[in-house]
């Protein structure tokens, strides 16, 4: 990916200089070589801060709702998964297409800076992986929507997205329950999974709603799991499989087991359907539209 950065700076500089956009959402280097961090660049003189390397794992589209009530045009770098998130935001009317200039990145897969930070910190003895967990099952390495794109077209790997879901499904009901309760017993309810999610873009989140309060705030396995049921059902049919929720989770809960189960079901009952791959009218998430022949099984 060595030439990505130079190209990215060149594009960003031009866009800022000719006034096409007012700001660029990209990445910059942190104080360690394995840290790339989201950055907002507003001045062409600052474009040299930008980088695009194998640590640019963050979905920048998650930050777009911060700018929803404004009018400036934004350039945003988007990998395959991120571009699907942008489609989501456009479909959800969070951000109009014409306020965005999307610089696509054909993505060979990223490394997770957090794994490296944790390993280097001395807090963990785990070795960081060469490819982030969220990239292992990627089927859309190339952006689905862009104004301009950087890098060679990448080939997706074999589609093994549902292997782990299938494994859970083959367990007995009690085993499944025990498994999930154990996983969720360590949830600290920090809501990082919600905030990292590009499909979680409601102005007032149900979990911040107090009149009435829908889910208890106490931290216990049952309330934790209820929280996650509500959250994942809420993004069912809208989850773009970027894996940010699972990556953001500070206690390593396999949240994609929930999301992928719902992706699998939505695809089975309403499909074939993949969220966020097209802006066409018929690409609206199945649970956001009504059809007389909608199946009852999903209910």
């Amino acid at each position: 990916m060595s030439d990505y950065t130079a190209k990215a700076r060149e594009i960003a500089k031009k866009l800022l200089q000719d006034g096409t956009v007012a700001m660029v959402l990209g990445w910059e280097k942190g104080d360690e070589p394995f840290v790339s961090a989201p950055a907002v660049i507003r001045d062409a003189a600052d474009v040299d801060r930008l980088v695009v390397d194998e640590y640019c794992i963050h979905d920048l589209a998650t930050l777009l709702p911060d700018y929803r009530d404004r009018s400036e045009k934004i350039a945003i770098f988007a990998k395959g998964c991120d571009s699907r998130g942008i489609v989501r935001l456009i479909q959800d009317r969070v951000m109009p297409r014409d306020r965005l200039y999307i610089i696509g990145i054909n993505c060979p897969g990223m490394k997770d800076p957090n794994e490296f930070i944790r390993a280097a910190s001395g807090l963990s003895k785990a070795k960081p992986a060469d490819k982030a967990v969220k990239c292992l099952y990627c089927q859309y390495p190339n952006p689905v929507l862009y104004d301009e794109v950087i890098g060679e077209i990448q080939q997706p790997g074999e589609d093994k997205r549902f292997a782990e879901v299938d494994k859970i499904e083959s367990m007995s009901a009690d085993e499944r329950y025990e498994f999930f309760i154990k996983e969720f017993s360590r949830c600290i309810r920090c809501y990082a999974c919600r905030n990292a999610c590009v499909a979680c873009n409601c102005r007032t989140c149900i979990f911040d709603e107090t009149k009435p309060q829908w889910v208890g705030r106490s931290t216990d396995p049952v309330n934790n799991i209820l929280y996650q049921i509500v959250r994942s059902m809420h993004v069912a049919g809208r989850c773009v499989e970027c894996g940010e929720c699972e990556r953001a989770c500070p206690v390593g809960i396999p949240l994609m087991l929930f999301n992928r189960k719902l992706i699998k079901d939505v695809d089975k009952f309403f499909g074939p359907y993949q969220a966020g791959i097209s802006l066409e009218d018929d690409a609206v998430p199945p649970l956001s539209r009504y059809r007389v022949d909608d199946p009852d099984e999903f209910m």
């Binding site: 961090a37 989201p38 950055a39 907002v40 998650t62 930050l63 911060d66 309810r189 920090c190 809501y191 990082a192 919600r194 905030n195 990292a196 953001a248 500070p250």
Partner: peptide, 9 residues
């Protein structure tokens, strides 16, 4: 604050 996503981690 631009980088922060307001989670509580």
């Amino acid at each position: 604050s631009s980088r922060c996503m307001n989670c509580g981690v």
